[in-house]
Design a protein around this nucleic acid. Structure first.
Length: 559
DNA sequence: GCGGATCAC
DNA sequence: GATGGTGATCCGC
């Protein structure tokens, strides 16, 4: 465990002395050989190029990090295969370009750090200290949260329905991309988000199963129906995940089970958590009995911690984060920052390489530096994380986006608001889009426009079904080089107003025409700035071309 | 407001 | 030989 990245040992760890510039201390404490190699090369421009192996490039791939069931994988070997299969490809080159940009960001942060004086931080300290006081005062630990996460969900469904798969390493997906694997496959280093052709190299006997989302949706619904008995308002984060507040269920159980002796507050909380563990165990038993699928769960006083805990005893296990504030805090501060929802590959690299932050404890120790060097939004979120203040605040508008992490980009989607779930409820939605990858690149004018129209038509059908129209049309294109661009336009009359997509295509076509000629591997269309369709001045029709449709011809008008 | 980037599943 | 789709947010300009 790396705690080497601390300051010189001052209480607050910034390691500053008066009038001295800020240092981060040994930033290479717990880093991999890979990041050492890259860090060294950024530091010493003319350093001798060391021989490279696959592990030196592992950081370029999303699937290089730890995942449940992959503890004993020979990572060196996996990295080498992935590298061999990837090097020289367009995808690999783009990954390298992105990494280069990230490293440039790191250098910028370091430069900023190098010129930071103690005097710069004085006002920051005040601000942060005040914020900490405020956050702790407002912290709400009154609820008990549970996050349920299905084990290898897609793969588990397929194995359940075809027992012959059970003893074999298998993956759901195809040669281009894998969405889930079972634990046998993970022993080979094969995991989600890995291209299938690399997976097959790692594990030649790997069985591929094509994904069947209807089946997963069905299974997911069955699970949800059980979970709803424990929290009717549960939020389905995705097909294989549910965010629950089991406080009420636990309290009712306690009330009916035993007369509440005169316990003090701590003893009551202790009992509630004890009951919560039993409740969640029973709930999980019920899920597996009814669906023959296993799940794991996390229990904690914040949704973020419950989410993190849900991964800890996978598969088919559960983990409770201690309820005592000091213990909960210790659990939190020992976490690697990558475990924090919203901190991904890039943010981790920046925090580690530029600030020497590897754990939440480091985040706390360097909170003043973070406040000074990072954006207000990000610093605020990270500070909340260190204090376990990630629960939705009661005061703020509960309705719209009271996410536990409303200040961090991806954390918001990771910890969705407990609001707006269900197929008919599109209130929370901000955009709707559709994209398609060409199997072998598309460049002819005909093909590009045909595809564009096709995507517009399919997307429009979905929009009409869900009664969604919006004022912003975005075209997304990915070139054969894997570079991605977006082009958007605001349209006066919200689209789409017809299910065949002709009006949407009008705008998308213009955006596309401006980018021609081009060779693409992906095209996507998105509609955003959505409005309430009942306010639309013109009715949306489910079929037909709008301008050709007279009111009496409309087969069906939608609200 | 736009376009790029990041993140999660 | 070959690396996905959907939705959301944040940031710099």
């Amino acid at each position: 465990m790396s705690t080497a990245a601390h300051g010189a040992g001052e209480p607050c760890g910034d390691g500053l002395r008066e009038r001295e510039t800020v240092r981060t201390g040994g930033r290479h404490g717990g880093e991999s050989a890979a990041s050492r190699a890259t860090s060294a090369s950024t530091k010493d421009e003319d350093a001798v190029e060391a021989p490279r192996n696959g592990s030196d490039f592992a950081h370029l791939f999303v699937f290089a990090n730890e995942k449940a069931g992959m503890k004993k994988v020979d990572k060196e070997h996996v990295n080498q295969i992935v590298f061999e299969m990837s090097k020289g490809s367009e995808h690999f080159k783009e990954a390298q370009r992105r990494d280069e940009r990230t490293q440039a960001e790191v250098r910028k942060l370091r430069a900023k750090l190098a010129t930071t004086l103690e005097s710069d931080l004085a006002p920051v300290r005040h601000r942060v200290d005040a914020k900490v006081t405020k956050l702790l005062r407002e912290r709400d630990l009154s609820r008990i949260y549970c996050v349920v996460d299905m084990d290898c969900f897609f793969a588990a469904v397929e194995m359940r329905d075809d027992p012959s798969l059970a003893g074999k390493p298998m993956a759901v997906g195809g040669l281009s991309m894998i969405s889930t694997t079972n634990y046998l496959a993970r022993e080979y280093g094969v995991r989600s988000a890995m291209p299938g052709f690399i997976a097959r190299k790692l594990c030649p006997e790997l069985v591929f199963v094509k994904s069947n989302f209807d089946k997963y949706r069905q299974a997911s619904q069955e699970v949800r129906d059980i979970l709803k008995k424990y929290d009717p308002k549960l939020h389905a984060g995705s097909l294989d995940e549910a965010y629950m507040d089991i406080t009420d269920f636990v309290d009712v159980k306690i009330a009916t089970e035993q007369a509440g002796a005169n316990l003090d507050a701590d003893a009551q909380t202790a009992r509630r958590f004890h009951v919560a563990e039993r409740v969640v165990q029973a709930m999980r038993d019920e899920v597996s009995a009814h669906t023959r699928l296993t799940c794991s769960a996390g229990i904690a006083r914040t949704r973020m911690l419950a989410k993190i805990a849900s991964d800890r005893n996978k598969p088919n296990g559960q983990c409770v984060v201690p309820w005592q504030p000091e213990k909960m805090l210790r659990f939190t501060r020992e976490l690697a920052i990558r475990k924090v929802p919203g901190i991904g590959k890039v943010a981790e690299k920046k925090l580690k390489d530029a600030l020497g932050v590897a754990t939440v404890r480091d985040l706390w120790d360097k909170r003043y530096l973070c406040a000074h060097l990072l954006s207000a939004v990000q610093a605020d979120y990270l500070l909340r994380v260190t204090l376990c203040c990630t629960n939705p605040s009661v005061s703020s508008s509960q309705a719209s986006s009271s996410s536990a992490a409303s200040s961090s980009a991806a954390a918001v989607s990771a910890l969705p608001s407990a609001f707006g779930q269900g197929e008919d409820n599109q209130r929370g939605r901000k955009s709707i889009g559709m994209e398609r990858t060409f199997s072998q690149g598309a460049s002819s004018v005909q093909e590009l426009f045909d595809t564009c129209l096709d995507i517009c038509a399919r997307l429009s059908r979905r929009c009409v079904e869900k009664q969604l129209i919006g004022h912003c049309v975005t075209l997304k294109i990915k070139k054969s080089s894997f570079e991605v661009f977006t082009r958007q336009t605001i349209v006066t009359n919200a689209v789409p107003r017809c299910a065949d997509g002709t009006d949407l295509f009008e705008h998308a076509r213009e955006l596309l025409a401006r980018e021609m000629p081009c060779r693409l591997r992906l095209m996507g269309i998105k509609v955003s700035k959505l409005i309430d369709p009942s306010h639309a001045p013109v009715k949306i029709v489910s079929s037909g071309v709008l301008h050709a449709v007279k009111p009496w011809m409309m087969r069906r008008t939608l609200k």
